[in-house]
Nucleic acid binder design. Structure first.
Length: 496
RNA sequence: GGUCCCGUGGCCGAGGGGCUAGGCACCGGUCUGCAAAACCGUCUACAGCGGUUCGACUCCGCUCGGGACCUCCA
């Protein structure tokens, strides 16, 4: 049974405390959640899929529990600096220059493609998807407040956050566990003459060099905001000075999130976030993904199988299922064997759903214990979103469903209803797994065609004309349709 | 070099001081005209070495191996 949100003890691993904590929203029944979104200057890859799916799961589960969630995920379209802050080039500006486009053309192009990929993965759109470039004013206002409070300084039209001063009054390192002294000691002095007073300081505003094409006016110079600022400004604007959950990849922990905390704390006078959540990284065949390693693959590469490391194409739902089969705080390794296993497992799960739909209950059947499975699945999700354990419960249900369909087991009406609710809640609503078997086709037409074909084949079989029945099956096989003969007649599915 | 994380069976991946994770593969069986699917069953694990404990894969230490961030790339 679905837990009541007033009673449910949702445990979230909070990076701030490095342990699981009981989740208590600031406002009863409501959750404000901010997640760092993509920098749109290239196609989405696995490194984008993991946080998107992870926080989609969080979003869906909070919603399933009954929370009203305002989910904000930004689009970074100002670009991070390509090199170090001194001679850096904006990633988007660089791409625009190379492709001879207006920067916003680059942004638009990749935003559209990102949305397409996310839709394919069945990742729900956030409640608000703000663009950094649309919030320059808010960012400038925030810088002003930080300057007023004396935690930033201006040099030659650029503004830097004074980490050492901040650290005297607060703790720069609460989140990442770093110590400012050690950071300074461990940082090589940059070759060029830095405008920064300390290597740990970071830019709030950068004056644009003449060749820099992305620029906005500000009190200090024509330039652009520093790369940590947008999240602070937009999080505050849409979720308030303090909100419940901030998510992102583990790679953003430092310096990005650490600096967000520092900026917001000074500007708004309060610690901005109650629960920090970080998803772990993905590897490919045990190796980190990176352009320099030659194993970077876009989601489209994966969906079409057009990467040399891939043995075949993997559907978006396979990728989603694969991601959900691991806990979000573990590293996840993409390999062909593992992906093929996920593909088959997902197919089994999906097929069982169809079987469940036509299952009949038997009067007076002994209890099987479906409620216990459902309970275990909810508890797994309440325990820091443990989707792999929830999925394990679903597979238990799959085994039971198939046994009933085989006639090895009987189920009473009450348990059948629990089973249907359980399956629907978890597979569709919480895990967000959609049946993509017939995606893009006119399903009812295909259903009709298939019924006819299978009927003809059945007739051939009844007169022992196996040459014909096999021919039909083989031809369908060429169309990636698998025919399965059972006691109750034949069924079919698209080859996974 | 600094800080932190991890090392589970053929592959992926949960778990946690004594109690079946799960998926995929493999093997045997049931069913089937054949096949697929499904069901049943078998098998196999906690990197190594010490320590704590009645008992450790689970806690502690060391060693080996891998990874993350502090550079880049995303």
């Amino acid at each position: 049974m679905k837990p009541d949100i007033a009673e449910a003890k949702l445990q979230i691993y909070n990076t701030l405390s490095r342990k699981k904590e009981v989740f208590e929203p600031l406002l009863a029944g409501r959750v404000g959640m901010y997640v760092c979104g993509p920098t749109v200057y290239g196609d989405a890859h696995l490194g984008h899929a993991r946080p998107a799916v992870t926080f989609d799961l969080v979003y869906r589960f909070l919603t399933a529990l009954g929370y009203k969630v305002r989910y904000v995920r930004n689009i970074t379209d100002v670009g991070h600096l390509e090199n170090d802050a001194d001679e850096g080039e904006d990633k988007i500006a660089r791409k625009a220059r190379l492709e001879q486009l207006e920067p916003m053309e680059v942004v638009q192009h990749y935003t559209v493609r990102y949305h397409k990929n996310m839709d394919q993965l069945n990742v729900l759109r956030p409640s608000i998807e703000p663009h950094a470039s649309g919030h320059i004013i808010e960012q400038i206002e925030m810088i002003k407040r930080i300057l007023e409070k004396g935690y930033a300084y201006e040099v030659n039209g650029s503004v830097y956050f004074d980490v050492e001063r901040y650290n005297q009054h607060y703790n720069y390192g609460v989140l990442s566990g770093r110590k400012v002294d050690e950071l300074i000691a461990n940082t090589r002095e940059l070759a060029g003459q830095s405008e920064k007073r300390s290597s740990t300081d970071f830019a709030l505003w950068k004056k644009a060099e003449p060749e820099h094409i992305m620029r906005w006016p500000s009190p200090w110079s024509e330039g652009f905001p520093g790369w940590h600022l947008e999240c602070s400004a937009m999080g505050c604007k849409y979720l308030g000075n303090q909100f419940d959950i901030h998510g992102g990849g583990l790679d953003l922990l430092f310096p990005h999130h650490e600096s967000e905390i520092a900026q917001s704390t000074v500007a708004n006078g309060t610690n901005p976030v109650r629960y920090w959540m970080h998803n772990n990284m993905v590897t490919i065949n045990g190796q980190k993904m990176g352009k320099s390693l030659g194993n970077a693959m876009s989601l489209d590469d994966i969906f079409t199988g057009s990467h040399p490391l891939l043995a075949q194409a993997y559907s978006p739902m396979t990728i989603r299922f694969f991601i959900l089969q691991a806990h979000y705080r573990s590293t996840l390794d993409f390999g062909n064997e593992a992906l093929q296993a996920a593909e088959k497992g997902l197919s089994r799960l999906t097929e069982a759903g169809k079987t469940l739909a036509r299952l009949q209950s038997s009067q007076g059947a002994q209890p099987i214990g479906i409620a216990k499975l459902e309970q275990a699945a909810w508890e797994a999700m309440l325990d820091d979103f443990n989707s792999p354990v929830a999925i394990a419960q679903l597979f238990e249900a799959v085994r039971i469903i198939n046994s009933i369909a085989e006639g090895h087991l009987q189920i009473n009406q009450e348990e059948l209803e629990i089973m249907r609710t359980f399956y629907q809640d978890f597979t569709c609503n919480i895990l967000g797994l959609s049946d993509e078997g017939a995606a893009g086709n006119d399903e009812s037409t295909i259903q009709g065609l298939m019924e006819t074909i299978l009927e003809l084949r059945q007739e051939a079989r009844s007169r022992k004309d196996f040459a014909t029945s096999d021919k039909i099956r083989d031809r369908l096989g060429l169309l990636n349709i698998v025919v399965k003969d059972g006691k109750e007649g034949s069924s079919w599915q698209f080859k996974p």
